[in-house]
Amino acid sequence: MIPFLDLKAQYQSIKSEIDAAVLGVLGSGQYILGEEVARLEQEFADYCNVKHAIAVNTGTSALHLSLLAAGVGPGDEVITVPFTFVATVSAICYAGARPVFVDVEPVTLTMDPAQLEAKITPRTKAIIPVHLYGQMADMDAIKAIADHHRIPVIEDACQAHGAQYKGARAGSIGASGCFSFYPGKNLGACGEGGIVVTNSDDQAKTMRMLRDWGQEQRYHHLLKGFNYRMDAIQGAILRIKLRHLEAWTEARRAHGRRYSLLLGGSPNLRTPVEVADRRHVYHVYAIRSRDRDELQRVLSAEGIQSGLHYPIPVHLQKAHADLGYQAGDFPISEAAAREVLSLPIYPEMPTWHVDQVAAALEYAYVS
């Protein structure tokens, strides 16, 4: 069997480092926040070339706190895309705001800047582009519109650790950037985790209080906050993994290039496009085909796992029917939802597995 993802392989490759880090935390008796989390924050901020990083318990919490720190609240609107994981939209709802959708553009499946300005109203208080599958949205165009209207941009970089736009790291361009450390991410914890990065001293201070019950100091609650703190064990593990992230990213990129080389001539199949001024980090390698379901069946029959990211856009999810959208409102997102198929990709994946996946897909079109 060729797995879609093999977390055990990554652990085995750095087992001695991880084990020592975990035992160090257990021996310290400091299990929530603390020194390991503080060091992770500084190291991740340095990695993203920003002033501050605020570690939290999930990527969803990172988005939620970024919205609150930007002043978003009940009655406000936040513009994002419907072709994303539901957490992007859930965070907007947590803040009491209303999600407003803009369709994605057909090449990168990220926010279409050409449709953005028409969705801005006096109630728009933030814009959240999603850096999908490991490639950043068109930040210059999005920021130009946002800056003209004095609206903060919050980057959903939960799938884009180490991605770049014209040399700038994901998370460093907007008012803040939000990352998930869910185990399957390019930089994944051994459990849940997330982080926000920002250059704003005020927003960083606010988010640090909000993640820890609104405390400025112990038992002095200035804000109505949350229990969004990161565990020290996750902080220690992520510090180890961060040291390997660039090597893992280059391995992912090599697999992505090989897939594109092998599949580029396949009929009725579209491979991902890496835009010239961006660094794609291939959190997901998603092909597109009108025969998606049949291709997935063929892969499964060959013992090859695959994924669907995402088969139902958020505006058509029952949980968000109250927003009033209908089928046909966002045709590019809806077409992508019918066509995308995510192939196995992870740093430790043997090259011959890439070749075998590609061969199975080619066989599907000639058999």
Rank of each mutant, 00 (worst) to 15 (best):
R290N: 10
H149Q: 08
T80Y: 14
T110C: 15
H131Q: 05
I332N: 06
S176T: 09
P344N: 02
N49D: 15
Y165S: 06
A38V: 02
A95Y: 12
G162D: 06
V37P: 10
S61G: 13
L40Y: 11
K224S: 14
M136T: 15
G75R: 03
Q12V: 02
L343Y: 11
F330K: 07
V37Y: 06
V354N: 04
I54L: 14
D112I: 03
L222V: 08
L343E: 06
T271W: 05
V104P: 12
I32E: 13
T110G: 11
H309P: 03
S342W: 02
L26V: 13
K318W: 04
E339Q: 14
A364D: 00
R243H: 14
H148Q: 12
V197E: 07
A170V: 01
Y219S: 11
I145T: 08
N268D: 13
A21T: 00
F83W: 14
P106E: 12
H309M: 14
A276I: 05
R270P: 04
T121D: 12
T108A: 15
R243D: 11
V275N: 00
A319I: 00
A276E: 15
S289W: 09
P311N: 09
I127C: 10
T249V: 14
G75E: 05
A321T: 04
A360C: 10
L40T: 07
P311G: 07
I233S: 09
N227G: 11
T60N: 12
P99G: 10
L5M: 14
T121N: 13
R98A: 10
E35P: 11
R279H: 11
L269V: 14
P82N: 08
A114P: 01
E77Y: 06
V89M: 02
L40G: 10
Y228W: 12
L116E: 04
A62I: 04
A53F: 06
H161I: 13
K205T: 07
S333R: 03
D138K: 13
G167N: 07
Q317R: 13
R338Q: 15
G59N: 07
I240Y: 06
L210K: 12
A21K: 05
V107H: 14
E274I: 08
I79Y: 08
Y363T: 09
E105Y: 09
L316M: 03
G134F: 12
T58F: 01
E17S: 11
R243M: 06
K15G: 00
I14S: 13
L67N: 07
L323E: 04
D112Q: 07
Y182P: 00
H148V: 01
Y165N: 04
G184K: 05
E362K: 15
W213V: 05
A301I: 00
I195V: 15
V37C: 07
R123L: 14
Y325A: 02
I92L: 01
F101K: 03
I92Y: 10
A276C: 05
Y182T: 09
R229K: 12
P152G: 10
P82V: 11
A168R: 14
L299V: 03
H52S: 10
Q305G: 15
